[in-house]
Amino acid sequence: MAIHKGLSLRGIGAKAIDSVLRLGYAARFIARTAASSGTSLRRPRLVIRELYFTGVLSLIIILVSGLFVGMVLGFQGYHTLQTYGSESALGVLVALSLVRELGPVVAALLFASRAGSAMTAEIGLMKATEQLSAMEMMAVDPIARVVAPRFWAGVISMPLLAAMFSAMGIFGGYLVGVVLIGVDEGSFWSQMQSAVDFREDIMNGVIKSVVFGFAVTWISLFEGYDAPPTAEGVSGATTRTVVTSSLAILALDFLLTAFMFRGV
């Protein structure tokens, strides 16, 4: 019966309508969050506190992953490039792949599973234990007091984390390529510098990570705020945050990359 219902045309239609409704609700939610950001501006301490939870606590995973991704790129890149005798381009390969793609994308994926899921769980739990209702009963808007500072903290920390990820990855590539394998250090850096453009590559990477930060934080906060106030509801919302964020990051990455290459 349940399977039949799920597969029926009516079921699909209902699901589609439901998704559109949810999207509309999510849009209204983010608009309200942006509109009630005044409190965060007046009291930067609220944002600083959330920067600690979203940014500082994500540092370890970001830095370690960045280092490893860079080291793997160093090995793989060297292996591929040496067949064409152009090992000296290793720096270019590592830097461009990190700055343009892997930095923003992998950092955002890690951010979604580390900070995003934590945000969803925290807000969902605050809802389930009536903390948000209590706040509202005390004439304090939870969107302004709880959601908006987290939103800004997420949007601020994402580009910083992505930059650290890329820098760490390039260092990892340098470790493997130059220190371990023995690619010429001079050509590693100089080729990188002549090939990586500040505006085209680095700034576009930063723009990507800001967009990803916006998307991940939005999804995480909305899932938490919209979670059914039960234990199952919160755990389901946390899972949904990671899944939806990851898909959103990859889809947005495709759109942004297409847009940026067209803009050249």
Binding site: L51, Y52, G55, V56, L59, A95, V99, S157, P159, L160, L161, A163, M164, S166, A167, M168, I170, W189, M192, Q193, S194, V196, D197, F198, D201, I202, V206
Partner: peptide, 20 residues
């Protein structure tokens, strides 16, 4: 430290990696 590190990483990218 986090903010300084993030901005520092951006600067490193701009100066050392890019052709800024």
């Amino acid at each position: 430290l986090f903010v300084v590190g993030g901005i520092g990483a951006l600067l490193v990218l701009a100066m050392k990696v890019g052709n800024m």
